[in-house]
Amino acid sequence: EKTLKIVADSEEEAEALAKELAEKYNLEVTIERNPEEEGKYVITIKIKP
């Protein structure tokens, strides 16, 4: 299993990107607040072998 993390500037941007990735590529995608940067969100994508 591989994990890729993407940082987005807004929750709306994160949700839109996560939804597109999940639907288009059938990936497991989660969104959470970035504890290191206020106002940023981390999109985590898990790629199963």
Rank of each mutant, 00 (worst) to 15 (best):
I43L: 07
K46M: 13
I47L: 13
Y41C: 03
T44I: 11
A16C: 09
I6K: 02
Y25P: 05
L27W: 13
L17R: 03
E32C: 07
I6R: 02
V42C: 05
A16N: 09
V29S: 08
E38H: 12
T44H: 05
V42G: 01
K5H: 15
V29T: 07
A22F: 13
I47Y: 12
Y25F: 03
E11L: 13
K19C: 02
V7S: 13
E12L: 06
I31G: 00
A18W: 06
I31D: 00
E1K: 02
K48Y: 14
P35S: 12
E12H: 08
S10N: 07
V42I: 14
E1D: 13
K5C: 15
E1R: 02
K40S: 08
E23S: 11
V42Y: 03
T30F: 08
D9I: 03
T44S: 04
G39T: 08
E37S: 09
T30A: 05
A14P: 00
L21S: 01
D9V: 05
E28R: 05
R33I: 10
T30C: 07
E12A: 08
E37I: 14
K46E: 09
P49H: 11
K48L: 13
I45R: 00
A22V: 15
E23P: 02
K19L: 08
E23G: 08
K40H: 06
A18I: 13
N26W: 14
N34L: 14
E13I: 12
V42T: 07
A22P: 00
Y25Q: 04
T3L: 13
L27K: 08
I45E: 01
L17F: 05
L4Q: 12
E37A: 09
A14M: 02
G39P: 05
K19R: 10
V42F: 04
I6Y: 13
T30H: 07
E11N: 05
N34G: 10
I43Q: 00
P49F: 12
K24V: 12
E1A: 03
E38K: 11
K5I: 15
Y25R: 02
K48M: 09
A16K: 11
I31F: 04
N26Q: 12
V29D: 00
S10M: 01
T44N: 04
E36F: 09
A14Y: 01
E28S: 09
E20H: 14
A8W: 02
E28Y: 06
N34I: 10
E28A: 08
E28Q: 10
Y41H: 02
P35H: 09
V29R: 00
A16P: 00
E38S: 10
D9M: 04
E32M: 05
E28W: 05
R33Y: 06
K5Y: 15
V29Q: 00
K24N: 14
E1L: 06
K46I: 14
E32S: 05
I45C: 08
K24R: 10
A16W: 13
E11K: 13
I47K: 04
E38N: 11
N26T: 05
E13T: 08
N34Y: 13
A16Q: 09
V42D: 05
A8P: 00
E11S: 09
Y25D: 06
E36V: 07
E36M: 11
A16T: 08
Y25T: 06
P35R: 08
L21A: 04
V7Y: 15
E12W: 07
G39Y: 04
A8L: 10
E12M: 10
E15R: 11
A14H: 00
S10G: 03
L17M: 11
A14F: 01
L4R: 06
T3K: 04
Y25A: 03
E38Q: 09
L4V: 14
N26V: 03
K48N: 13
E36L: 09
G39F: 07
E11D: 03
T3I: 13
I43D: 00
I31Y: 03
E32A: 06
P49D: 11
I6D: 00
T3F: 15
I6S: 01
E36W: 05
E20L: 14
T44P: 00
E38V: 08
L4N: 08
K19F: 06
L27F: 14
E37N: 08
E15T: 10
E12K: 08
L17D: 00
G39V: 02
T30Y: 09
N26C: 10
K48W: 11
K5R: 05
L21E: 00
K48A: 12
V7F: 15
D9Q: 06
E37F: 10
A8I: 07
K46H: 13
E20T: 12
T3D: 14
K40T: 14
L21D: 00
N34V: 08
I45Y: 07
T44Y: 13
I45T: 02
E36G: 09
T44D: 01
P49C: 15
G39K: 03
E12S: 09
D9L: 03
A16G: 07
L4F: 15
D9A: 05
E15D: 07
R33E: 09
E37C: 13
I6G: 02
E1I: 09
E38M: 09
E28L: 05
L27A: 15
K19W: 07
K24E: 07
K5Q: 15
Y41D: 00
K40I: 05
K2E: 15
I43K: 00
K24Q: 08
S10D: 03
D9C: 03
E13N: 04
E36H: 09
K40A: 03
I31N: 00
A18P: 00
P35Q: 10
A14E: 00
L27S: 15
D9T: 05
E38G: 06
N26G: 13
I6T: 02
I43G: 00
N34H: 15
A16E: 09
L4D: 08
N34E: 08
D9R: 04
K5W: 15
L21K: 01
E1Y: 05
I31P: 00
Y41K: 01
I45G: 09
K46N: 11
E12V: 07
E28I: 05
E11F: 10
V29E: 00
E12D: 09
R33S: 09
R33V: 08
I45Q: 01
L21F: 10
L27P: 01
S10K: 02
L27V: 12
I6P: 01
T30W: 09
E12T: 09
I45V: 12
A22E: 10
P49T: 11
G39S: 08
E38W: 08
E32L: 03
A18V: 13
K46D: 07
E37L: 12
K19D: 03
E23M: 10
E11A: 13
K40R: 07
D9Y: 09
K5E: 14
E36R: 08
E37G: 11
T30P: 01
Y41P: 01
I6W: 13
L27Q: 14
I47Q: 04
N34A: 10
V7M: 08
T44K: 03
A14Q: 00
G39C: 09
S10A: 01
I47T: 04
I43V: 14
I43C: 03
P35Y: 11
N26E: 05
A14V: 02
R33M: 10
E28F: 06
L4S: 05
E37Y: 13
N26I: 04
